[in-house]
């Protein structure tokens, strides 16, 4: 699969309210290309609810339903049941939520929907903060990152949503990144072809939230994967397979880059470098990532 083979069809219309360099619209375009027009999207409170733009206009050329923050998966269950009753079984139901609506606020509705084996795709675009409301800390925020509610840097480590999802034993779950559109396209395409609950998480580096230049979105995503801070993998029929660069890191064919290469470009980690380099905290981040990869090797290699 090359970029040339991706369909031309465009369900995202230019002129939305997204920030320049937004990873969410970037990911959304690829997701729309993979699923096509025959879909219903459920959007809770997140950046996407703003990107849709103001009534009476919208920037999405597909049916979209807005719902309360905690109810993305519950709303999707209802829409799926309604469509099933009408006999429209070929329509794909997609819940599209941010990391706040997945990791923290929406987790009980999501867990319930996965347990009921609702036939839908849950997509979480993870920018590691509540960016819509103004950069607050979420369960996905990494250790030592600045947000408006963790001014001196977060003191806890982030949770592993991928592994929480895996313990629901759903047919398909995956982690991907905006910087790899072919990988994202393939995973969404595969999820569409499977019946049952599917979960896809997309790493989405947010320029205003992470405090980096808006032209660097793609670069930041690539670096997140290459430094091992984010892993690309698929979980299918109880088997985990790693993809792309993450596979090479897991098998030890390439060494992951030092985390400093990634965090030094982000203003949210600036207090680790200015006025004095905080070696201890950088070492703590490194150790945490090493531990994570050690666990991956033990469980999935």
């Amino acid at each position: 699969m090359a970029i040339k083979d991706l369909p031309r069809e465009e369900c995202y219309i230019p002129g939305s309210a997204a920030c320049p360099g937004c990873p969410a619209t970037m990911a959304m375009r690829t997701v729309f290309k993979a699923i096509g027009k025959n879909m219903v999207m459920i959007v809770p409170a997140c950046c996407t609810a703003v990107i849709e733009s103001l009534h009476p206009n919208t920037s999405f050329d597909i049916p979209t339903m807005n719902i309360a923050f905690e109810a993305a998966a519950a709303g999707a269950s209802g829409v799926e049941a309604g469509l099933r009753k009408q006999g429209k079984t070929d329509t794909t139901v997609v819940a599209w939520a941010g990391d706040g609506g997945t990791y923290d606020i929406g987790i009980q509705a999501l867990s319930g929907a996965l347990e009921r084996q609702t036939n839908f795709i849950y997509i979480c675009y993870n920018n590691e903060i509540y960016s819509n409301t103004g950069i607050q800390r979420s369960g996905a925020t990494p250790y030592a990152a600045w947000t408006t509610t963790t001014v001196g840097g977060k003191t806890e480590f982030r949770k592993e949503m991928g592994e929480i999802i895996m313990s629901h034993h759903i047919p398909y779950a995956a982690q991907t990144c905006v910087s790899y559109p072919e990988d994202l396209y393939n995973k969404v395409k595969k999820a569409k072809s499977i019946k049952g609950s599917k979960y896809i998480e997309i790493m989405a580096p947010c320029p205003p939230g992470w405090r980096f230049g808006m032209e660097r979105t793609v670069e930041m995503g690539t670096m997140a994967v290459e430094t091992g801070a984010w892993a690309l993998y698929e979980y299918e029929n109880e088997v985990v397979t790693f993809n792309g660069k993450s596979k090479l890191i897991l098998e030890g064919k390439i060494k992951r880059k030092p985390i400093e290469d990634w965090i030094k470009y982000q203003g949210r980690f600036r207090h680790l470098f200015i006025p004095k380099k905080d070696v201890e905290k950088i070492k703590a981040i490194e150790n945490h990532i090493d531990q994570k990869w050690e666990r991956y090797r033990k469980c999935y290699l």
């Binding site: 002129g15 939305s16 309210a17 733009s53 103001l54 009476p56 206009n57 919208t58 920037s59 050329d61």
Partner: peptide, 12 residues
């Protein structure tokens, strides 16, 4: 209900 329009937030 909102309807799809090019330039929903004006000429960006």
């Amino acid at each position: 209900i909102s309807y799809p329009v090019k330039g929903a937030m004006g000429r960006t």
